[in-house]
Write a protein that binds this DNA or RNA. Structure first.
Lengths: 224, 224
DNA sequence: GTTGACAATGGACAAGCGTTCACCTAAACA
DNA sequence: TGTTTAGGTGAACGCTTGTCCATTGTCAAC
């Protein structure tokens, strides 16, 4: 057991919830806009009534060497996190996204009917390759969870999904328990089809009902 | 022959020398610093005695839709540079799809100079995401070998490579022993850069010489 | 010879924006 | 019980920075 208190643990390198939120927003903002936010923009986003609230968090992040700033200069950040799995998470705040949607959560139906709230980013993918026709309603879906790690699809990856009837062996985007996940579609002759996770620690099998399968995964795109 | 005079040609879409210089500086600045320059920094770099000299060029670039700016906000640029080479060949007018050659083997030099024989397919991708929209001469490279399995890049995957100067931590396409492979580019302050395989069974380090690095990997695409 | 794009000077204003000082609350130490 | 850390309010100061006005000059085109 780690004898240190939660407090002590937090003061070292880990970030507090608030700090993580601030950091995520900053990264997210730059990712969307290609430039950094001003302190007052951060303030506004979090509803602070003083810019100094932001300053406190920035100072903390700077002391922990997560971010670096150039004193006195506007909108200049530098983020030291080579690890950057952060791109994959992007909590919320993606309000002003302009382009074609990456659906973070298509829980409640077909992608056509999804609200803008489900969009967590933009990505235009069109692949004419190996049967991936330049066709209609394909959409990108960002992967959460590790149900497909055995076929090398990881959290944060984007999967291009084409809405169509699945065939045996296809990887499909499926609606299970109100959440869209990736599963392998299995259909043997004379038997009802079912879904299967590609992770040996997830031995679950899922029945296929109407509206379960939303489309077939055609490609994985991961930005580096 | 084009009957229009050089002048007329220039007024359309091409940039004047000065404008090209300004644009290059801005792009370059952002590469190095990860944030945009202020107008006075541009002014100083070019030795202008008035900020308005810069303003004129920026207005011109904006009118030509090369750059975009947010009025009144500091250090906010957005650079739209549709790849000149791709502009001509877009399949149908599906906005900004770029088709990227898939090079099976780029052993003998820069991708520019590669013979069409090295092309084993074409991949039509348009990703407006994480800096990938800046594709000048991007090309796709099919991965052979397992030198990058620790970052989940596998044999058969296609990596989209953008020719440009690498930064510390980038994954780069590098020419080693007459063969193009993927490596991690490491450059610590005050030290010469080197390349490193992302596979714990490949502990090799490689020095960086001229012509070694061909570009920076921006995305992985795997068709399922 | 006039027009218009291009390039640049010089000065000044106002908004954007980072920074700081004083002060407050709550929880976690020691 | 006093002290530290995280989180926040409120207001003000002043540098940074984008913007605008007036003016000058060059060069090719009409």
């Amino acid at each position: 057991m780690d004898k240190r208190s939660p407090k002590q643990l937090r003061t070292m390198k880990t970030l507090t919830t608030r700090q993580q939120e601030i950091l995520s927003f900053i990264e997210n903002y730059e990712w969307r806009n290609r430039y950094w936010p001003s302190i007052r923009e951060i303030q506004e986003k979090f509803g602070f009534k003083s810019t100094n609230a932001v300053m406190g968090h920035l100072r903390a992040l700077e002391k922990k060497q997560i971010i670096e700033r150039i004193p006195g200069q506007a909108r200049t950040f530098r983020i030291h996190r080579p690890d950057a799995s952060s791109l994959g998470q992007m909590p919320d705040n993606s309000s002003e996204v302009v382009d074609i949607p990456i659906m973070g959560d298509i829980a409640a139906g077909y992608p056509d009917r999804v609200e803008p709230a489900g969009e967590i980013g933009r990505l235009q993918v069109d692949i004419q390759h190996a049967g991936f026709n330049n066709n209609r309603r394909s959409f990108a879906l960002q992967v959460r969870g590790d149900s497909m790690v055995d076929v090398e699809i990881y959290e944060g990856d984007m999967v291009v999904v084409e809405p169509r009837e699945p065939r045996d062996g296809d990887i499909v985007a499926a609606l299970i328990d109100g959440e869209t996940t990736l599963k392998r579609y299995i259909q043997k002759a004379g038997e009802p089809p079912y879904l299967k996770a590609e992770n040996k620690f997830y031995p679950e099998l899922y029945p296929v009902t109407e509206l379960t399968v939303q489309g077939v995964a055609k490609a994985v795109v991961r930005s580096l």
